[in-house]
Design a protein around this nucleic acid. Structure first.
Length: 459
DNA sequence: CCTTGTTTAGGTAGAG
DNA sequence: CTCTACCTAAACAAGG
């Protein structure tokens, strides 16, 4: 039962997580993956936030350790076929190819993904898994701001240097190792222009050049009553320098790794890119871009014919519809009952206590069966997921809009309010609280000792 | 000289 | 068509 309260506390900013209780969900997800759960939908790919297809696409980590379970080829082929024919509903992670499959190796920052976009097929990436960590051809579908934020989160530090950002990105995304260094200019541009990023001057006694960067908590406060905008995933971009090469080859060419992929210890590489992205998605509705737009909803003010980049989150928030309004406008509920559903809703259902996972104690052994508890009743894990999500969504419709806190915004706000601990190397609230479902389900990923100490601190 | 940081300018693409 | 989000390029300055 604790997992529910855990997540509820998590939503409130105080996090209580246990290691073992989530394993049944892992099992459940395995079942979901292996099941023939079929979400027939005519939704286009942009309806990703209310879609269950992506859930089916999840690969589940093997709880026994070792290699992660990767989606079987047949499954991938089906997915690809569906995408090609346009009849496959898009997942919240539609463009987030890194989030479809799990790393092959625990703790190894591989963003393995199923390629399922026609543009990728054009270059021979059909039904292939893409590992952003090793694949230099495909540009990760994440904005620079997202990447910066991920790097910051990965650092587990309150501040991070520009070079650390570079390092993290190149360590986790092979594309940028092979790409022209202009992307670094874009990174700097983002840091400077985006008001959510604030520069922390380096102390005089600190060696090195340049300052540190962190997220401005002020904007977290401003975001409290704000809304966010969701934007679809950017198109997959092929490394232009490799396009011709890819065209020449009918098979995706394996480009040898020329750069070591070792992650800086200072960056606490236990957070790989995929996990971080998932965390963001979990916070912000599973859309990495949403993560960005939530956290760094930028606004460019047009002055005459000249655009000035202000990246003014405050203006954006002020002009955004109220939270309740945006909630009322969300058509997620019905869609979810029609076969599309929101992973966040599922998560919320867990938070609301609708979804009981553990019949033992907080530290009870990992159950070896696939049982789940929903409202005290044994249920099929798959059913549990679906029913809990649906019940949650139904409850959502009946809830007063004032009471119905927009958890996406809340999570994002929570993140911005508590981006990082001031204490170096201490797992901050974000890093814990937004531990995504994958991580929650991931026994192996586990929780560090300092995590436990942090929980005690928070309590 | 290189890195870092700021600023300006122009472009693409999706959504309304 | 406009707005918005995001990207790319480039110029420039400052500092190690």
């Amino acid at each position: 039962m604790l997992s529910i309260n855990i997540l509820e506390s998590w939503a409130k900013g105080s996090v209580v997580l246990e290691k073992e209780v989530l394993s049944p969900v892992t099992k459940a997800r395995e079942l979901i993956e292996s099941s023939s759960f079929n979400c027939s939908s005519s939704d286009n790919m942009d309806d990703s936030l209310t879609n269950l297809q992506w859930l089916q696409e999840f690969s589940i980590r093997n709880t026994s350790g070792g290699q992660y379970v990767i989606s079987n080829n047949q499954h991938q082929s089906n997915l690809y076929e569906q995408h090609l024919h346009g009849d496959a509903p898009a997942s919240p992670l539609e463009g987030d190819l890194a989030c479809i499959c799990m790393p092959l190796t625990p703790g190894k920052p591989t963003a393995t993904a199923l390629c399922s976009l026609p543009s990728m097929a054009e270059y021979g990436y059909c039904a292939e898994e893409i590992d952003y960590k090793t694949n230099p051809h495909i540009k990760p579908p994440y904005s620079y701001a997202t990447l910066i934020c991920l790097a910051m989160q990965a650092s587990k530090k309150s501040k991070i240097t520009l070079s650390d950002i570079y390092t993290w990105i190149t360590d986790n995304f092979c594309y940028f190792r092979h790409a022209e260094p202009t992307w670094q200019n874009s990174i700097r541009h983002n840091l400077s222009l985006n008001k959510c990023f604030i520069k922390v001057p380096r102390q005089k006694d600190e060696p090195g050049k340049g300052g540190y960067w962190k997220i401005d908590p002020e904007y977290a406060q401003r975001l409290l009553n704000g809304a966010y905008k969701k934007r679809g995933m950017p198109p997959v971009q092929i490394n232009p320098t490799l396009k011709n090469q890819l065209r020449m080859s009918s098979q995706p060419e394996t480009v040898p790794e020329t750069v070591s992929t070792n992650i800086s210890d200072a960056l606490h590489s236990t957070h790989n890119s995929k996990e971080l992205l998932e965390e963001f998605e979990n916070i912000n509705g599973h859309d990495p871009n949403l993560a960005e737009t939530t956290l760094f909803d930028t606004r460019s003010a047009v002055k005459g014919s000249k655009r000035k980049y202000t990246y003014d989150l405050w203006n954006s928030v002020a002009k955004s519809p109220s939270r309740s309004e945006s909630t009322l406008e969300e058509p997620k509920v019905l869609e979810s009952l029609e076969g599309n559903f929101d992973w966040e809703a599922l998560l919320n259902s867990v938070m609301n206590g609708d979804f009981s996972l553990d019949e033992g104690g907080p530290l009870s052994p990992i159950p070896q069966d696939e049982d789940l508890m929903a409202h005290g009743i044994h249920v099929n894990p798959l059913e549990a997921f679906v029913s809990s999500a649906e019940s949650s969504l139904l409850m959502e419709t009946q809830r007063d809009s004032d009471v119905n806190v927009d958890k996406e915004t809340f999570f994002a706000t929570d993140f911005l309010q508590n981006p990082w601990s001031e204490e170096e190397n201490r797992p901050d609230l974000l890093c814990i609280s937004n531990a995504d479902v994958n991580q929650l389900f991931d026994v192996e990923h586990s929780f560090s000792d300092d995590f436990d100490s942090t929980i005690l601190t928070l309590l």
